[in-house]
């Protein structure tokens, strides 16, 4: 039982760290702000969540202490990360950061122009 717990916690923390590292790699690799914020919102959130869940399970199994603060942290990260991604993208778009040149479609620019000409 204890060994299963150890393996599970180890896997959780390890995969969380791996996902965080990969999303940091994505920040370097991807070409424009919007694609980077894809990497930053999703993968980084999942990495942090995995690490926090691992820590929570460690405290619960081995120290027999149910840490409500870690649970709250999980909930808060879960709620705020997509909003932060959205606001970053919106602010970048509104201040005219160009998209990658191989982007295909841009409905928002069309609609904004239509509104201005009205």
């Amino acid at each position: 039982m204890i060994q299963i717990g150890e393996i599970l916690i180890g896997l959780l923390v390890l995969s969380g760290a791996l996902i965080s590292a990969l999303s940091a790699f994505g920040l370097i690799r991807l070409p424009d702000v919007y694609l980077r914020s894809h990497a930053a919102t999703k993968s980084a959130t999942l990495g942090v969540l995995f690490i926090l869940v691992g820590a929570f399970l460690y405290f619960a199994f081995f120290l027999e202490h149910v840490s409500a603060k870690l649970l709250l942290g999980i909930v808060f990260v879960f709620i705020t990360a997509p909003v932060a991604g959205h606001l970053n993208g919106r602010a970048a778009y509104r201040s005219g950061v160009p998209m990658w040149e191989r982007s295909v479609q841009d409905d928002l620019a069309k609609d904004l122009k239509k509104k201005e000409s009205k």
Binding site: L30, D32, V104, D107
Partner: peptide, 21 residues
């Protein structure tokens, strides 16, 4: 997040980004 990670670690970047309504 697994889909995004797959895109990141692929050797050639094969994404076609865009904005749709």
């Amino acid at each position: 997040s697994f889909l995004v990670i797959m895109q990141i670690i692929r050797p050639r970047l094969a994404v076609r980004p865009g904005i749709f309504a």
